[in-house]
Design a protein around this nucleic acid. Sequence first.
DNA 1: GCCAACGTTGGC
DNA 2: GCCAACGTTGGC
Length: 147
Amino acid sequence: MKSEPSAYSIEDLQKEKITIWDGVRNYQARNILREMKKGDLAFFYHSNCKPPAIVGLMEVVETNIVDPTQFDRTSDYFDVKSTPEKPRWHTVKVKFKERFAQPLPLETLKQKFNPDDFLVVKKGNRLSVMPVKNTIAQEIFNLTRTF
DNA sequence: GCCAACGTTGGC
DNA sequence: GCCAACGTTGGC
């Protein structure tokens, strides 16, 4: 799950402990959020920064949450076409698990993984939420340990 | 349903 | 700041 650290960082989550992952306004990403199960683990990825990197780990603690920002006129994520009866945007609540002592930069991920196996390293992929294969996740854990 | 124009993301 | 690669919008 990506976030620009200037907007919301792993440090913010570490302080806050739990947050609603709001503001996702892309249908494909939303669909992935909708499929998430309680107890699922998720990597926190810092995007649009130097260097872009996987910086930590989170756990999904609540699913199928109606993103409240879609009804908030003062929010950047306000959606005029969304109604409480028919909300367009759902998301999850995540809990801080771990902040990696050594973040895994995108450059390293590109060296280690094939774009066909891991969407993060695929050129042009702008999805802010994407699935990670179990085998890839395991290798990422190994990398954070050996770094 | 097509597609041009426009907006956004995000690495570099 | 640039720009490739998307996604979305809206006229037709």
